[in-house]
């Protein structure tokens, strides 16, 4: 009797793990620092997490099909490098969509190989893309730091209705992704393909097309994440986007999206991204000692 009750409790805890972890983190840091639980700090956390969140939303699509994309950080860097080097003179309304398109195109390359090379795991394909794209960006920039022009920098400081531009961007991507995954045939097919690609094929779903599309979306979101990030920091060194795949995948998985496909969604991903940033922020706020040893 108590066994089943205990098991049910464990299930409830497990299903709401991201939320519970979030609350626990909030309580711990709020008790350690009185500056932590303020609206200003919270806006700060969300703003700082928005580029990770946008990229994590993109990778959620890929994870839902039981795939993976390790090239997100490299796509981010390539997009920003091209923006700074070649598109700096264009107005933002032209240059940003162009960078987004570049991200989409790089995602399409991933998707093409994932679909064409069935025997090769996306892990290998996108790992290769990571090295190729980082190499390309380093070559383009001569490994030097690149800077973006004034209009983009001021965009990073812009707010609308008191909410920073980055958060608006984040909210828009999230809302669109949520609708696509829940309310469009494509979104439901993503879940079906992730659950059982063979059955999905038998049900008449164009499985290769769905797989191709999720990598395009992931590439697009990676480029958007790069834009949001560069508008905040204004300069990109040779380590821009380096190892970003870790927090991005971690955000999605923390949010409950399965690495084996078919389970999860973007709401959890958003929580995951904010949770990661909250921990980082909290550690700074409480002056955690980096070199502390137990």
């Amino acid at each position: 009797m108590s066994g089943t009750a205990g098991r049910r409790l464990a299930l409830v805890v497990l299903q709401n793990a991201p939320l519970i972890a979030f609350v626990v983190v909030l309580v711990i840091f709020a008790s350690l620092s009185d500056r932590f639980l303020t609206l200003g700090n919270f806006t700060n956390i969300v703003t700082q997490s928005s580029h990770i969140a946008i990229m994590a939303i993109g990778i959620t699509f890929v994870l839902l099909t039981a795939g993976i994309d390790l090239s997100v950080g490299a796509v981010m860097y390539v997009g920003v490098a091209i923006l700074a080097l070649y598109l700096g003179d264009l107005p933002v309304v032209v240059s940003f969509p162009l960078v987004a398109l570049i991200g989409l195109a790089l995602g399409a390359v991933n998707g093409f190989f994932v679909v064409q090379m069935r025997g090769l795991h996306p892990f290998i394909i996108t790992l290769a893309m990571l090295f190729i794209l980082r190499g390309a960006a380093l070559w383009m920039t001569d490994t030097r730091m690149v800077f973006v022009a004034e209009p983009i920098m001021s965009l990073g400081r812009t707010s609308y209705l008191g909410v920073p531009w980055a958060i608006w961007m984040f909210a828009a991507v999230f809302a669109l992704a949520w609708i696509v995954l829940r309310e469009t045939p494509f979104g439901r097919q993503v879940y079906a393909v992730g659950q059982d690609p063979v059955a999905a094929g038998k049900a008449g779903i164009n499985v290769p097309l769905v797989l191709f599309a999720v990598y395009c979306i992931c590439g697009l979101c990676a480029a958007l994440g790069g834009l949001v990030s560069i508008a905040q920091v204004a300069a990109a060194s040779s380590t821009f986007g380096f190892q970003k795949e870790f927090p991005v995948i971690a955000a999605a998985v923390l949010g409950g999206t399965s690495l084996f496909g078919g389970r999860g969604g973007v709401i959890g991903t958003v929580f995951g991204a904010i949770l990661i940033q909250t921990v980082e922020n909290g550690l700074v706020m409480t002056n955690a000692n980096l070199h502390h040893r137990w």
Binding site: T184, P185, R188, A192, G194, A199, A200, A203, G262
Partner: peptide, 24 residues
């Protein structure tokens, strides 16, 4: 597909769309 609802399973091969052509 265990992760989808009954209605989604039934219509997964061809969902009817809002207003006939919206992708919803």
């Amino acid at each position: 597909f265990e992760n989808l609802s009954i209605e989604e399973n039934i219509f997964i091969s061809g969902f009817p769309r809002r207003l006939g052509r919206l992708p919803l």
